[in-house]
């Protein structure tokens, strides 16, 4: 019985690698991206610009500059698509930002903790031990990375569809000045990043909801439900006093980046609201998750 001689004392100090959090983040990103659900969401997002482009192309009979200013009453950019395919990028982002993009982010964020809990994998991550704060940070970082990825998928799909279906070239800003195609591309990238940043609030909200339940489906449904509710409330004039605090209120301000000079006020207000949501709901998620009994 030599094993009985093993005496338990305090474990020797373990030396965590400073890079291990990145290893967990990499694992998390790969795990998320290998889900069929994630790929389906990205596929839907990639299809939207193509559908918009094809619809505009069919409606205008394929003749460039045939759209005219009336252009169907869609987002401000839609009339210009036939002149310049780059405008499909702005149109597609304006079309997906109110619902498709935040819905996709809500699904990923809502699933972040609750999905692991309902699969039972959360307890094994925590006894690994991943550490609750670190796991939450990794989950939030992954969700934000998905915001960027989803936005870029929309933008790139729109750019490709725009280049195939319509002519490219110098473009006219909302203010009426001309900018080169190269500068237009840079503006498109900037807009995509601002759109991605607009989703940070939904991501934080979804993560918080995700810490409240052990059901991934419930967390996703609640987050998407909140998204729709806020969008509806944002349309009710009597609520205008609180509307500036809705995460979606300044979303479409990204169009101001197409002015010359750029009108920053609402863009900055939007980023401020997103930061506020990230701080408030990020803290709430942390407080909840670090104190929670993991019974699933």
């Amino acid at each position: 019985m030599s094993r009985a001689e093993t005496v338990a004392t305090a474990p020797p100090p373990v030396r965590p690698s400073p890079l291990w959090t990145l290893g967990l983040l990499r694992s998390e990103l790969l795990t998320t991206l290998r889900r069929w659900r994630t790929l389906a969401l990205l596929g839907v997002l990639a299809a939207v610009p193509v559908l918009v482009g094809v619809a505009v192309r069919i409606e205008t009979g394929g003749s460039p500059a045939g759209g005219g200013p009336e252009g169907g009453g869609g987002p401000a950019f839609i009339a210009q698509i036939t002149n310049n395919g780059l405008f499909l990028v702005f149109t597609a982002l304006a079309a997906t930002l109110p619902f498709f993009l935040p819905m996709a982010v809500g699904v990923i964020a809502g699933d972040a903790i609750a999905g692991e809990a309902s699969a039972g994998t959360l307890r094994y991550l925590l006894v690994a031990p991943a550490g609750r704060t670190r796991l939450l940070l990794v989950k939030y970082t992954t969700t934000v990375a998905f915001c960027v990825l989803a936005t870029l998928v929309v933008a790139l799909s729109a750019l490709i569809a725009g280049a195939v279906l319509f002519p490219l070239g110098d473009l006219t800003t909302i203010s009426g000045t001309r900018i080169t195609f190269g500068e237009g591309l840079l503006r498109a990238l900037l807009i995509a990043l601002v759109v991605a940043a607009s989703l940070i609030g939904v991501a934080a909200l979804g993560l918080f909801v995700s810490t409240l339940t052990n059901s991934g489906i419930a967390a996703m449904a609640t987050t998407v439900g909140l998204l729709i509710t806020v969008q509806i409330l944002d349309q009710i004039p009597q609520l205008h006093a609180i509307q500036p605090y809705f995460f979606s209120h300044y979303w479409l301000s990204f169009a101001d980046l197409m002015r010359e000079p750029v009108y920053w006020d609402d863009v900055l207000r939007n980023l401020g609201v997103q930061a506020l949501y990230a701080a408030v709901f990020g803290s709430a998620a942390w407080a909840r998750f670090t104190a929670k009994d993991i019974t699933a």
Partner: peptide, 10 residues
């Protein structure tokens, strides 16, 4: 699961 362990050598 191994990536979740801070002491595990990658």
């Amino acid at each position: 699961y191994d990536a979740a362990d801070p002491t595990a050598d990658p």
